[in-house]
């Protein structure tokens, strides 16, 4: 099982690294969206500092969502996905591997980049630290929950827009606790509760999402 998991992760990573343009464009999307907010609302640092957690988190949600069609789309078009579903190995484990690879290529780079963008918003050192931690715990849930939406909309016309309709409402708890953790840290309150809740969401979504995604994949490939 672990062999399968690592094999899927290694394969997906290799494929992703051969298409670096995709990775980089999602990251630049994140940077551009975050940089648009000060242009839209004005450069007052007080307001920006207040908005920073929400802006960074919403931008992270959107950037993750943009990369979701890639999760199964290429494998679906060249027929690999069908073979993965037919394979005797348990599909939820394969799916978990794909989620992990997706997070490594989308969520993790966002997390590493976020503190730099947080500096633009004049976040305090505590705030930056908690922001990074929260993104580290929160973005894997985004990949896991998003995979369900990606699997459901596989091969549909207008899949990209549809995936946002399905997935964004389900992202709301992650957004609330993720941004809440940073808010709490900035205003000097305890942020541990938020991080624990993010961890709980992560545990729940890692457990349930592979099954739901596997079921959705089977339906989509019927």
């Amino acid at each position: 099982m672990l062999d399968l998991l690592f094999a899927v992760i290694a394969r997906d990573l290799k494929l992703a690294l051969r298409r670096q343009a995709d990775l980089v464009s999602a990251l630049f999307f994140f940077i551009i969206v975050v940089s648009l907010f000060p242009l839209g609302v004005g450069p007052e640092m007080d307001m920006l500092r207040k908005m920073a957690p929400g802006v960074l988190w919403v931008a992270a949600l959107l950037a993750t969502m943009l990369t979701l069609p890639r999760l199964f789309g290429d494998d679906y078009r060249d027929g690999t996905l069908e073979q993965l579903v037919l394979a005797p190995q348990p599909l939820p484990v394969t799916v978990l591997g794909k989620m992990a690879a997706h997070w490594l290529t989308s969520g993790l780079p966002l997390t590493l980049l976020a503190p730099v963008l947080g500096l633009q918003f004049d976040l305090s050192a505590d705030g930056l630290l908690v922001l990074t931690l929260a993104l580290l715990v929160g973005t894997p849930s985004l990949s896991a929950i998003g995979a369900i939406g990606a699997a459901l909309t596989l091969g549909l016309r207008g899949g990209g827009v549809l995936v946002s309709l399905l997935v964004l409402p389900l992202y709301i708890p992650v957004l609330i606790f993720g941004a809440g953790a940073v808010d709490a840290a900035v205003s000097g309150l305890g942020f541990e509760a938020h991080l624990s809740l993010l961890g709980a969401l992560l545990a729940g979504s890692l457990f349930f999402a592979p099954w739901a995604t596997a079921a959705a994949l089977k339906i989509s490939l019927e």
Binding site: I148, L170, P173, I176, L201, G204, A215, I219
Partner: peptide, 17 residues
């Protein structure tokens, strides 16, 4: 599948909000 995922999420969403 979507309706079931949604129904599991509704309490989580409600409490988080």
């Amino acid at each position: 599948v979507l309706a079931l995922v949604g129904v599991v999420n509704i309490p989580i969403i409600y409490f988080s909000v």
